[in-house]
Simulated scan of single mutants.
Amino acid sequence: MTPLHLRIVLILVAISTTLLGLSMLLIGPHRHITLTTDFYRLTDLLPANTSNIIAAVAFLGCAVLSIIAIKKINLRPWLGYLLMVISLVPLGSLFASTMWIEALGGFPVIGSGQGVIKYFALFSIAWFLIKPNLSGYQAAYISLFPVLLVLLWIGGMKFTLFEAQGIEGLVNSSPLMSWMYSLWELQTVSNLIGVYDLVAVLLLIVAIYRRELLYPAMLMSGAVFIVTQTFLLSFSSSLSGTTLLSTTGHFLVKDLWFLANLICFYAVAQTLTSKQRIEHIEENISFPK
Score class of each variant (00 low, 15 high):
L186W: 04
L186G: 02
Q187M: 09
T188P: 00
T188G: 01
V189H: 10
V189Q: 07
V189R: 08
V189L: 07
V189N: 08
V189S: 10
S190N: 05
S190I: 03
N191I: 06
N191D: 14
I193F: 14
I193D: 04
G194L: 10
G194I: 09
G194F: 11
G194D: 09
G194P: 05
V195C: 02
V195K: 02
Y196P: 03
Y196D: 13
D197Q: 10
D197C: 15
D197V: 03
V199L: 14
V199K: 02
V199S: 03
V199T: 08
A200T: 01
V201P: 00
L202I: 10
L203F: 10
L204Y: 06
L204D: 05
I205W: 02
I205T: 06
V206Y: 03
A207E: 01
A207K: 01
A207S: 14
I208T: 12
I208N: 06
I208W: 11
I208K: 06
Y209V: 10
Y209K: 13
Y209S: 11
R210Q: 11
R210T: 04
R210W: 13
E212D: 07
L213M: 08
L214V: 12
L214S: 14
Y215W: 14
Y215A: 13
Y215P: 00
Y215V: 15
P216Q: 11
P216A: 12
P216W: 10
P216R: 11
P216F: 12
A217E: 04
A217C: 09
A217F: 08
M218I: 14
M218Q: 11
S221M: 06
S221G: 08
S221F: 07
S221D: 07
G222M: 11
G222R: 11
A223N: 08
A223P: 02
F225C: 00
F225W: 09
F225H: 03
I226C: 09
V227P: 02
T228C: 02
Q229N: 13
Q229W: 10
Q229L: 15
T230Y: 03
T230D: 01
F231E: 03
F231D: 02
F231H: 11
L232D: 04
